[in-house]
């Protein structure tokens, strides 16, 4: 009898707790939101352009996409270095003064660094990796750092693709990207 009372009290307490939770949700401010319950599991990721596609071998691409950035350098720096030296067997240093280990160590943690204090650009001749603008010729920057050598003057037929801008102009106002081709 006493045990039953405890059980009923517990159920009542649980019920009131649940009711409180429900009403709490109902009381939340702002527009109604559809139900988005459940767990979402990672399938693809990217930060800097063309990192996975240039430096990760085909057999590792799916695995790289589900390796958190804080674990990428440990797992992939050596493979990135091998890939770099396969692409450019004559690599010594690049225009940033980075040797193969330093360069690939920086690349293997695939995050895009963004400054909150000024100009955001992949590379503009002065600022290096402070963001990525729509107009940045990121491929030429990467080709130059891979093939261009310490002065940026080596392998001139490989260090630029000679496509310097998008096929449509961007807008200065939100949402910045050009309207789709119709």
């Amino acid at each position: 009898m006493k045990f039953n009372t405890i059980k009923i009290t517990a159920i009542a307490a649980l019920a009131s707790l649940t009711a409180f939770n429900c009403s709490n949700d109902d009381d939340s401010n702002g527009p109604k939101v559809p139900e988005f319950a459940g767990t979402y599991v990672q399938e693809d990721q990217m930060a800097r352009p063309a990192i996975s596609t240039v430096f990760v071998s085909m057999g590792n691409k799916d695995a790289f996409n589900v390796t958190v950035p804080s674990k990428q350098a440990a797992g992939y720096q050596a493979a990135f270095q091998n890939k770099l030296l396969a692409l450019n067997p004559g690599y010594t240093t690049n225009a940033l003064g980075m040797d193969a280990a330093t360069f690939t160590g920086a690349l293997a943690t695939d995050v895009l660094t963004v400054t909150l204090d000024g100009k955001t650009t992949f590379f503009d001749g002065t600022n290096v990796l402070t963001g990525r603008m729509l107009t940045d010729d990121v491929i030429d920057v990467e080709l130059l750092l891979i093939f261009g050598g310490p002065m940026g003057t080596d392998n001139s037929t490989l260090s630029s693709d000679n496509v310097d801008a998008n096929d449509k102009p961007f807008s200065n106002t939100f949402p910045y990207l050009a309207a789709p081709h119709m």
């Binding site: 990721q45 930060a47 909150l116």
Partner: peptide, 16 residues
């Protein structure tokens, strides 16, 4: 963060 540098990246995640 207000000032300084951030690191950023994007992921797609599928509902299970």
């Amino acid at each position: 963060g207000g000032s300084g540098k951030i690191n950023s990246w994007v992921e797609t995640k599928r509902k299970q």
